[in-house]
Each structure stands twice: as C-alpha cells, then as structure tokens.
Design a binder for these strands. Structure first.
Lengths: 225, 225
DNA sequence: GTGTCGCTTCGGCCGCGACCAAATATTCGC
DNA sequence: GCGAATATTTGGTCGCGGCCGAAGCGACAC
C-alpha cells in the first residue's frame, strides 16, 4: 500500500558500484555475457550472478540464452536514458552550469565517456596504441602487451596499481559518435587521468567536454609514436 | 584513480527510500524545511538531517538558510530530469512500451504523480475534499478531519494502517499541469489505490496516464458529495 | 560415457549505513 | 536574560546486502 512504484528501488539497483559498472559497460549497446560482466564489475562470477538476477527482476536488463552463454543487454532505451541522466548528474556533481558555447563540435572531438577518453581523440588514441603494438586485439578481447606495459610506465602510470584494481585493465567501448572502438578499463581511465595531471587537457566545468591545450595537443600527437 | 565520476554514488543517493521520498517531495519545485522533509520521509529529524547533508554533498540539493529554518530544494533542473527518468523507469518497471495514442490531453486530465492522483481530476478531488471539510487546510499544512476519517473508512480505506505508516497521512503537492494543489501522502496514495481496486479507473500500461471508466467517472463525481 | 566450461545456488562472513535517543548548537520570542 | 523551537552532532545498535568459496546443474566437445 504505502510505497507504490518507488524511485528508490531502481535507484538502489544503480547505486551499487558493481552493478553500475555492469550497466556502464552495457551502455555501448552490445550484449555481454555474465562472465564478461563479472570481469567488468571486478567481482567473482557468483557475485555477478546475484547482481544480474537482481537487475533482471528490476526490469533493467533483458537476457538471451545462447548455447551455454547468457547474453545481457539493457532492457530498453529508457534504461539507457536514465543511466545517461545519472552520468550527467555524476559528472557535474554539484557544479553550476556554465558554458553555453559551441558544444557539439567539441563534444564530438573529445569528451569523457564515464571515466575515459571518447570522441575522435579517443578513437585516434586507440588506433595508435593498436598500431604500435602497445595493446593487442584478439577476437574482440583487448590486452596490454609487454611493450605497452613499459611505455605506459614511462608515461607515468602505476601499472601495478592498474593490475591490482579489480576492474579489467583493458576493455573496448563502442564510441557513440564515431561508431568505432576506444579504450576503456582501468588503463583507459588511467591514461585520461594522467593527461589531466600533465595539464595536456582539462574538462570543461559542467560538461563532458575535454579540451586540449595547444601544447597538450602537440604532446598527444607525439605520444607513443 | 579507479572509479572517476561514478554513476553509483548518485544512484546510491537516490536508492534509499527515505531520501527518495524527500526527493519526490521536492519534485513539486517548492522548497521545504528539514523538518517537513523528515515528516515526508517518515524518519526522525536526526536521521533526516544526516540524509540531507549527504544529499547536499552529492550536489543534488541546494539549501537556503532563513531564520531558524533551512529550506531545501533540488539543486537544478538536471536533478529533476534524472529523478523523472528514474520515476519513468520505476513506473513501467519491466513493462514493454505501448500506446503511442493521444497522450498529452489524457495526461493532463488524470495521471499518477509518484503514487497518487494528479492532473485535473487530482485537483478536482482535492477541492472537493476541502469544500466538504473532509480534509482541512491551515496555513499550508493539511490534515484529515474527524468527519473525513469516517467517510474515508466508509469508502474502504484502512485508517489505522494509514496512520501507522511512517509517511505523513496528508500532504499537498503542487500540480505540474494545473499549478494548483492536489493530495499526496499516504491518504492520497490510499485513495488512488482504492479507486483502482474498485475498477473505477486503471493505469495505462507503460504510461502514467490514469483512465477512468464511464462508470468510474460517474462514481467519482458522486463521491464525497 | 568423461572432462570442461559457464552459470547459478547455498552457506557463512563481514562491513556499511540507516536508524533513534540524548545531548549540543543556533535562532527566535518575550 | 530565559524558555521554546529547529536543526545538527554523537554514540551505539542492528539488519540488510555485498562478497566469496564450494557445490550443483546444464550445455557443449570429445
């Protein structure tokens, strides 16, 4: 009687870090297996299974059984819309809204996707890393090469910390505007963090736009080449 | 390093029932005091205070100090948008989307606002209840009269349960389309539930629209008169 | 059949956080 | 000044739920 349809139940579903990571991973639109989602969330398969059945009950996910895999995807566009609204909110997180400026072209060029770099720059980076054999793709999965490990360490990343993190180090993410892959996972997040720390770029307050400085732009081009 | 801006923090903020009730109450757009919000959420002032400071930290609320009161309101339209997206999601909660039909006029006529009746019908009901002295308004606060208590019981509501609920029994809510008050609180929710149970109306699957049957329409007009 | 892989269920551990009562600010009315 | 009202802080209890390992189940491959 008393509660009716409650915002809190669906909020709570999205409010757990493991589940949030799963949902964010599914934002790319592709269906993922339970195992992949466990990886993505950084939890044991048993734990992931519990989370997934909870998300199913809540109507946020739909599932498709295929052989011995179960493929999960977001239940509908409204789920994606809600997640996007929360991401938007999490981004500015109390900042006031500013910058009416030319938003769209900049968004397409470089923006934050959850916690890593997306847009033209993101796709470009991914391509470069692949060409230079710093990361390697084999049938859909992506991983860091030994060569890459050395270069990333030289760039200032704490490789041990990346690996210690429960998240997978490398992960592909389908770019919304470019429709090509860019790099997610703790490595993707770490690279973006490092670029911010080096002041190559900064994130425009109140938006998801990443704006490179001229110097940063030049450094970015030289990077890993 | 690892998490960056996380959807899960804001999700968790909205994921607690007490906080969700507060946010829903603030969706009307009016500012409320800490005490009122404690009432609304059905928790002790001490607990509410903790929730509120948490919501402030998260950037979901803004506060304005005025005398010995603190007035809280939603921090911005994006917060409202996110809440609305979650409400939308909670509403259909796994239902598929249907009914492209003539949505707007029906929405204006009668719809669900969180868990009670809103729109023209909602405002109408509120007016009737006030005129007939079943509920009473005194400087902003609304309460159930003895007369009302008897009539609502005759209508099939469990008054004891309403009072036992931690939510306030009566509560005003500013109508979005009508810009006038309608009735929220556990009484408002109970009345709507009862109308559904009596099959006077049903809620269109996948929408917030409440559609009255001809019989229900007639009964509704006779109600409490 | 046997082995392997993917996923779920079960049992138990552990910690975060929601909750309240009582005590402590802060502000108002007088 | 003194009380009354509003709000926050403190301290402590308690339960929900996230987490894992181990065991169970089902689908493939051979």
């Amino acid at each position: 009687m008393q509660n009716g349809p409650s915002i809190s139940t669906v909020g709570a579903l999205m409010g757990d870090p493991a589940r949030a990571n799963m949902l964010a991973a599914l934002m790319s639109g592709q269906a993922l297996t339970a195992g992949e989602l466990a990886q993505e969330a950084g939890v044991a398969p048993a734990t992931a299974s519990g989370h997934l059945s909870r998300l199913l009950d809540g109507g946020l996910l739909s599932v498709e059984k295929q052989g011995r895999h179960r493929y999960f995807r977001l239940a509908g566009p409204d789920v994606g819309a809600a997640i996007e609204a929360l991401m938007e909110l999490a981004d500015r997180s109390g900042q006031r809204r500013v910058r009416p400026g030319p938003k769209d072209p900049e968004m397409r060029r470089a923006r934050v996707c959850y916690d890593h770099l997306a847009g033209e720059r993101g796709v470009e980076l991914f391509q470069r890393l692949t060409q230079d054999n710093l990361i390697a793709l084999h049938d859909g999965a992506v991983s860091m090469t030994d060569r890459g490990e050395a270069r990333f360490a030289a760039f200032g990343l704490d490789i041990a910390a990346l690996k210690a993190s429960r998240r997978p180090v490398c992960r592909t993410c389908l770019d919304w505007s470019e429709r090509r892959l860019h790099l997610a996972g703790s490595l993707g997040a770490g690279l973006l963090d490092r670029m911010f720390a080096l002041r190559w770029a900064h994130r425009l307050k109140g938006t998801r736009i990443v704006r490179f400085t001229p110097k940063g732009e030049a450094e970015f081009r030289k990077l890993f080449s």
